[in-house]
Computed example of a mutant assay.
Amino acid sequence: MYKAVVSPDIYLSILEYRHADELYKLVDGSRDSIGQWLSFPSKTHKVEDSKIFIEKSLKRFAEGNGYWAGIWYREKLAGSVGYLYIDWKDKKTEIGYWLGKNFEGIGLATQACKLLIDHAFSELKLNKVEINVASNNEKSKAIPKRLGFKNEGCIRSYEFLNGEYLDRVVFGQLKDEWAIKKA
């Protein structure tokens, strides 16, 4: 099992089949808050849907093409963070994240992203990490800003969600920039 300790209260662990019930309950209990910005809650209707998601994530992990990890806070599943893909040719990835509504505002996503960014640059030897966020999602936009990412632009009408088109802001961080920030 992959487990990365972030702090005494926080750790990340690859999502496994045994987490499906807990994952489903977290999504179901936060359906409105997560679904405002992301499409997957509208496709998650039962525990089996969470198992299918975990299966796809484990397959991507085995193929070296990204994965999703759970974010645990005080031994409770609080959300998820992951590499949406890994582009080995161009040496880049995109990080995605979400939290259950009861776990927002305590820094979990920022700390989880920081760990994945460090891993992407130091272990995976990537050159760029992106975080793409709905333009109106101020809480989520604060995370890449807090981590020193540069706003690289806006993709207009990126996706149609909840009856409206959402723009997507692209934030990027290069390996050299991250090294300077950490120094």
Rank of each mutant, 00 (worst) to 15 (best):
L124E: 15
V47L: 07
E48P: 08
D87N: 09
W72M: 03
S57T: 09
F171R: 00
V170W: 00
L23R: 08
C154D: 02
K91S: 11
I155N: 04
T93M: 06
W68G: 02
F121S: 13
R168H: 03
T110Y: 07
D87C: 07
G96H: 04
K46R: 12
I117K: 09
T44D: 08
F171I: 01
K89W: 04
S157N: 08
N102S: 10
D21Q: 10
I117S: 09
A112R: 11
L126R: 08
P144R: 00
N151C: 14
E130Q: 12
S57N: 10
N136G: 15
E152C: 14
R168Y: 00
E16H: 01
A142P: 05
P8W: 01
C154P: 07
G107P: 11
L126T: 14
S13I: 08
Y165K: 02
K182V: 09
E104R: 10
N151Y: 11
R168Q: 06
A183D: 01
I10A: 06
I86Q: 01
L124K: 14
E159N: 00
I180Q: 00
G172V: 04
I71V: 12
L99F: 10
I14H: 06
A69R: 01
D32V: 12
E138V: 15
D9F: 04
L23S: 09
V169T: 03
I180P: 00
K25Q: 15
L166N: 03
D87L: 05
K3Y: 05
V27M: 12
E177I: 04
K25G: 11
N162H: 06
E123R: 10
K114H: 14
R168T: 00
K25Y: 14
Q36T: 15
E16C: 09
I52A: 12
R31P: 12
G66Q: 02
Y97C: 12
K128L: 14
T93Q: 03
Y11S: 11
I71P: 04
V6C: 07
V47T: 14
K139M: 13
R146K: 15
K181H: 00
I34M: 10
A120R: 09
K128S: 14
A120K: 10
K125M: 15
Y73I: 08
K76N: 04
E94T: 05
C113L: 13
K3N: 05
M1K: 01
K43L: 15
C113T: 14
D87G: 09
T110N: 09
E63M: 10
K3D: 01
Y24E: 08
C154T: 13
E22H: 04
K141T: 12
G96D: 08
I155M: 10
V47F: 09
D176K: 01
I155L: 13
W37R: 02
A134C: 15
I71L: 07
G64L: 02
G29L: 03
I155V: 13
F103P: 08
R156M: 10
K56P: 08
K114S: 13
G70H: 02
D118G: 13
Y17I: 14
S33R: 05
I86W: 04
A112F: 11
G96K: 01
A78M: 10
D90R: 07
G148T: 11
E123C: 15
S135F: 12
I71N: 05
V27Q: 03
I86M: 02
S13L: 01
S30M: 06
E104H: 06
V6T: 07
G66H: 03
Y158Q: 07
P41Y: 03
